[in-house]
């Protein structure tokens, strides 16, 4: 029984962590541009030689 309760509490804590993570991502605007990431991951940042970074 105690093992079960321990596991339940553990799962709820893990769940709470996931929820907090979601809240943080929603508040920091991660869902504002759902289109971008699929293109951004294909962009190479290979700067040509001799160019100053940024």
């Amino acid at each position: 029984m105690w093992t079960l309760i321990l596991l339940i509490v553990l799962s709820l804590i893990l769940g709470l962590g996931a929820w907090l993570f979601f809240m943080w991502s929603a508040r920091s605007g991660q869902y504002d541009d759902p289109e971008g990431p699929k293109y951004r991951m294909l962009d190479d940042d290979d700067e040509p030689l001799g160019k100053k970074k940024k």
Binding site: D33, P34, E35, D43, K51, K52, K54
Partner: peptide, 27 residues
Amino acid sequence: CSSCVWLNEKILLRTAGIEYARVNYAT
């Protein structure tokens, strides 16, 4: 299209003095 976003970001980021430039693809 996405390459326009890319071009705008790159051209801005390579301008001295600009520290951050990011274009939202959807808006």
